[in-house]
Amino acid sequence: MARCPQGLIAPALRLRDLSVVGLKDTVYAGRPHRAALFDRNGMRFALVPAGRPDLGYDASRFQPTAGQADSYAESAAEFELPPLLEYVDAMTSPQRPAEIPAMLVAGEAFDPCVVPLAADGPRVLEVVASAGTRSGTLQVYGSGSGLKVEFDQNGKVRRARATRRVSYHEALTALADMGLRTTSPDEWEWACGAGATTLFRWGDQSVDDGYPYHYKTGPHRETNLWGLAIAQDPYKHEATTERTIVCGGDGGGTTCGGDGFFLGWLTLATAYRDNEFGQWLASDDGYASEILTRPVIGLD
């Protein structure tokens, strides 16, 4: 299903500021792969091969475990939801054929609203001194901007970042200024699932006694087959080229609202689509503390 012509790697090497990190043998959910990794100005990219997959999800294939079924039954009774398979079908993108070109995809989501700061910069030192905080994470917010400082176990500044509120279009423009773009919805699903036809990229099963954030280890915390840290946290939804379509989460609404464990895990499904959430984000009333994108370098 996936194709990785060797001739595509050489043009990638000629891209400005792009260097080879190396090849890495990976195994995810029992599937082996040799990932090709690149670096561009400190941002790690993985080669996602071309493919002609069937994207989306057919809910009629889903066979829930007893725990998943029980969890959903409780949610359905409380929130007057339709039968389980009908709900899964409504909350995932429809099955469709696609043709995806080979591309380099960032290993981690990127927030164009964030500007790295030197740990010993005057602004960082001033804020730390005034707050007196020397552990964990310090966040300071002002009008339309903020500062986030992370400390190591010895109380030293490990990383500092300035944040500013930007619109969706400003975020995509910031990527374009870096010679990058974000994924289309189809590209995102292909990059996340890596050809898996199951509900999640690791299979159909999910934990039935907690939400994803309760588990710091597990298949959702591991990088996927192609070496991408993706769909790991429902709070970290990612923007795509389609303004109303976000992937990889729901902003934490389901988890924060206590809607039920299965519904909380469903937000990490490869084809998950919360259309109401996406439309709200794109409206005048929508807002987000960060706009995460998945940077792409095309190879065409």
Results as ranks from 00 to 15, higher is better:
residue 25 D to C: 12
residue 32 P to A: 06
residue 179 G to R: 00
residue 180 L to A: 00
residue 161 R to P: 12
residue 169 H to C: 06
residue 262 F to E: 06
residue 96 R to Y: 03
residue 55 L to G: 05
residue 46 A to H: 12
residue 220 H to T: 11
residue 17 D to C: 14
residue 299 L to N: 10
residue 290 E to A: 11
residue 253 G to K: 07
residue 249 G to C: 10
residue 240 T to G: 01
residue 52 R to C: 15
residue 121 G to N: 03
residue 213 Y to K: 03
residue 165 R to E: 07
residue 55 L to Y: 00
residue 221 R to E: 15
residue 28 Y to C: 14
residue 204 D to N: 08
residue 44 R to K: 09
residue 29 A to G: 09
residue 49 P to I: 09
residue 188 W to Q: 04
residue 147 L to R: 01
residue 18 L to F: 07
residue 140 V to D: 04
residue 289 S to Y: 10
residue 4 C to F: 00
residue 144 G to N: 07
residue 127 V to D: 06
residue 30 G to I: 12
residue 15 L to N: 07
residue 267 T to I: 01
residue 7 G to W: 13
residue 241 T to H: 13
residue 160 A to N: 02
residue 104 L to D: 04
residue 106 A to S: 05
residue 92 T to Q: 09
residue 284 D to M: 04
residue 64 P to W: 11
residue 183 T to Y: 01
residue 255 T to S: 06
residue 288 A to V: 04
residue 289 S to F: 10
residue 34 R to Y: 08
residue 217 T to W: 12
residue 24 K to L: 11
residue 287 Y to N: 15
residue 154 N to K: 14
residue 189 E to L: 10
residue 203 G to N: 08
residue 162 A to Q: 12
residue 230 I to F: 02
residue 263 L to F: 05
residue 174 A to E: 15
residue 50 A to Y: 15
residue 34 R to D: 04
residue 50 A to R: 09
residue 211 Y to W: 13
residue 106 A to V: 01
residue 53 P to T: 12
residue 153 Q to G: 07
residue 117 L to A: 06
residue 142 G to M: 05
residue 90 A to W: 03
residue 130 S to Y: 06
residue 168 Y to R: 11
residue 96 R to M: 10
residue 175 L to V: 11
residue 276 E to I: 04
residue 136 G to E: 08
residue 21 V to W: 05
residue 201 R to N: 07
residue 124 V to C: 07
residue 300 D to C: 09
residue 87 Y to D: 04
